[in-house]
Amino acid sequence: MSAMEVPSLHHKTMKGIERKVGKHVRAVAKESCTEALQQERLPLYVKQETTSDQTAKGQFKYDMGWQKRGSGRSYDSKSGVGTLIGNRAGKVCAYGARIKDCKTCNYHKGKGPVPKHQCFKNWNGSSKAMEADVGGELVEEFEKENVNWCGYHQGQQSYKHKGLPYGRPLTGDSLREDMDAIFRVFIANSDKIAPGGSTKDVESFNNMVATKAPKRMYLSSSDSLLNRVACAVAQKNDGHSYINTLNNSLCMSPGRLMAERAELKRRRSAK
């Protein structure tokens, strides 16, 4: 900006603006995830004949990306972002982050009491265990929000199982033992029989996060990482038009040039 004779902003001023805008960015990303989840749920309520289980049930892809390059033997990244992408629409339905560091806590460590601040540190375990923890959290949230997918949970007493005699559930301890023995064989060979779906959508999103939060920069000790991840989520779901949505939430003019640029980007990505 100085090269154009425009006064540059102080880094503290920029950080203050980022914190104000960051709340709206995360809200826009959350709303886009909710809309993406609705798109995944919609086909389940439409009665249509199909021979493929993949079109009759919602399927999702999950993976985690870390903000530090791993050597293949050790993973010591201070943060990681897990993403759940729908198989039908290819959009981010849920995401979560694990952060092991806090800039303010580190600064005051050993100097006295830590002042009250917004601490984003939420993980103390190993970096490798972040992936399983975020995945479990997303599945739990997903099940809580979508209990009505299963007719049994809507009315357990009146529900009738269509594939069982007289619509009644299976009972009996001996039958349970036999069923457990059968399923243990499948569990032991789960790696072999698991569907080999493509995760290119998740890898593409991880690359999008890396462009907004480069691994050469350390962003894992503040809210900068969460704000940049939220931008990546909104861009993945809504394209570059999410900037206009963000401007509307900030009571700013959307901008005609920005809308045209977003439409041009959308057309290029659609080819």
Rank of each mutant, 00 (worst) to 15 (best):
176 R>D: 10
130 M>D: 03
27 A>H: 08
197 G>W: 12
142 F>D: 01
77 S>Y: 01
217 M>I: 15
237 N>Y: 02
233 V>A: 00
32 S>T: 05
246 L>F: 03
230 A>G: 05
256 R>P: 09
148 N>F: 12
33 C>S: 06
110 G>D: 01
231 C>T: 04
10 H>K: 09
213 A>L: 02
176 R>G: 09
192 K>N: 13
30 K>P: 01
172 G>R: 05
174 S>A: 15
170 L>M: 11
256 R>Q: 14
259 A>M: 07
80 G>Y: 00
187 I>K: 13
153 H>V: 08
75 Y>R: 09
208 M>K: 15
204 S>Y: 05
170 L>E: 08
266 R>H: 12
152 Y>G: 04
202 V>Q: 01
14 M>G: 11
142 F>E: 01
97 A>C: 14
6 V>S: 09
38 Q>A: 13
166 Y>M: 11
46 V>Y: 13
160 K>L: 10
62 Y>L: 13
268 R>D: 09
93 C>R: 00
68 K>T: 06
120 F>V: 14
253 S>V: 11
244 N>M: 07
58 G>Q: 04
195 P>I: 05
47 K>H: 12
37 L>M: 06
155 G>H: 12
263 E>D: 11
137 E>P: 03
224 S>L: 06
226 L>F: 12
124 N>T: 15
158 S>V: 12
155 G>S: 15
130 M>H: 06
148 N>I: 07
29 A>Q: 00
219 L>I: 03
39 Q>R: 15
175 L>Q: 05
257 L>R: 15
76 D>T: 13
119 C>F: 04
163 G>D: 10
56 A>S: 14
143 E>N: 12
180 D>A: 13
251 C>S: 14
176 R>H: 11
8 S>P: 15
258 M>H: 11
91 K>D: 00
243 I>C: 05
189 N>D: 07
121 K>Y: 06
85 I>Y: 00
67 Q>M: 09
192 K>R: 14
37 L>E: 00
260 E>Y: 13
77 S>H: 02
13 T>F: 08
178 D>G: 09
186 F>P: 00
79 S>W: 01
